[in-house]
Simulated assay, not measured.
Amino acid sequence: MSFFDIVAELRAAGCVFAEDEAHLLTAEARTPSELAAMVGRRVSGLPLEHVLGWAEFHGLRVAVDPGVFVPRRRTEFLTERAAALAPPRPVILDLCCGSGAVGAALLATLPGAELHAADIDPAAVACARRNLAATGGHVHEGDLYAPLPPALRGRIDILVANVPYVPTAEIPLLPAEARHHEPRTALDGGPDGLSLLRRVTAEADSWLAPGGHLLTETSGTQAPEALRIITEAGLLPGLATCEDRCATVAVATRPVA
């Protein structure tokens, strides 16, 4: 199978960046038969990252297993805002961690950080443990804060929670790659897309250190309600946006006193 044949197949399947994908697949495959199989999986609709087994995120190559949420490039903005707010040697919690991409990026950026990550999906937890094993990150399996060690209460400086925020009724409008190959729990944010944010925010005060920050990705249209939720939880609200990446991050800060 020539490079041009691969590009043609990918284009016919609707891949917008067919040439870029062809280069990645060609570089990753070890044999012609493996390359043909990888192209076949991509043409069938499997996300490119699941075919490759990894995603590029914040300068890192992050392992992404089949069935695990693929980290979005816009979420790099969430990572950058979290790093900018972190004190020296911070205690970090990556909640709804998926593959652990955000936590891995923060560990690479913040020397001496202590990282804990958690997710309810066993496949995501296994993937995150692979990505964080060499860095000393601790990965916990369970629903939001439930699996965390009690000793973390009141110690977390940076809490990143990339919670699902797509309203349930809009799930059918997502690209087929997401609908068919990523877990529903990583996409569905409930009736208004903010159900998980409410749960995370309601308990954040007891886990954050004084002056600690919770950062979560949301949409521009949901931002006003997200800030209201933060305020009602007794936290100080803030908002950051990046037009280039179409990214909106809500920030909740625990008051110092």
Rank of each mutant, 00 (worst) to 15 (best):
D143T: 13
S33T: 02
A27F: 01
R228N: 12
D94A: 09
A83H: 05
L197S: 10
V139T: 02
D188H: 06
R198E: 15
P147S: 13
S2L: 12
F17C: 08
F3P: 03
D20E: 15
H213E: 13
A36P: 02
R245G: 01
A118P: 06
A101I: 05
T253A: 10
I230W: 08
R228Y: 05
A257H: 13
P87I: 01
P175G: 11
T253G: 04
C242A: 11
H116F: 14
A126I: 07
I92Q: 02
G211N: 12
E9F: 02
R184G: 08
A133K: 09
R11P: 00
L10G: 00
E232T: 13
V43H: 03
L46R: 10
D121C: 14
D192R: 05
V251N: 01
Y145R: 01
D157P: 12
F57Y: 03
H181R: 13
T168V: 06
H116W: 14
W207Y: 13
A104E: 11
L93T: 02
A161I: 04
A117Q: 09
A86C: 07
E225P: 02
L132M: 05
H23L: 12
D188P: 14
S2E: 13
P71Y: 07
L197P: 11
G67W: 05
R72S: 15
F4H: 12
Q222T: 11
T168S: 15
S44G: 07
A29R: 06
A37K: 04
V166N: 10
C127F: 01
L107K: 02
A101P: 14
F69W: 12
P167H: 10
C127G: 07
E182F: 12
P32V: 01
R73Q: 13
A22S: 13
H181P: 10
T253W: 04
R74H: 15
R73S: 10
L144Q: 12
P175Y: 10
G190R: 12
G40E: 08
A223S: 15
A252P: 09
P90E: 03
A84T: 07
L215T: 01
V200M: 05
I229E: 10
A151E: 11
A117K: 06
P90A: 01
C97H: 01
L239S: 15
L85C: 04
P147H: 10
A202P: 09
E19Y: 00
A104Q: 10
C127S: 07
V160L: 03
R184D: 09
R73W: 10
A128I: 05
L115T: 12
I158Q: 11
L95Q: 04
A101R: 05
A84Y: 02
A27D: 06
I92E: 05
E243C: 05
L236E: 15
R198D: 14
E182I: 06
V125D: 04
P167V: 11
P149Q: 09
R129S: 08
T248W: 15
L25C: 00
P66W: 02
D143R: 14
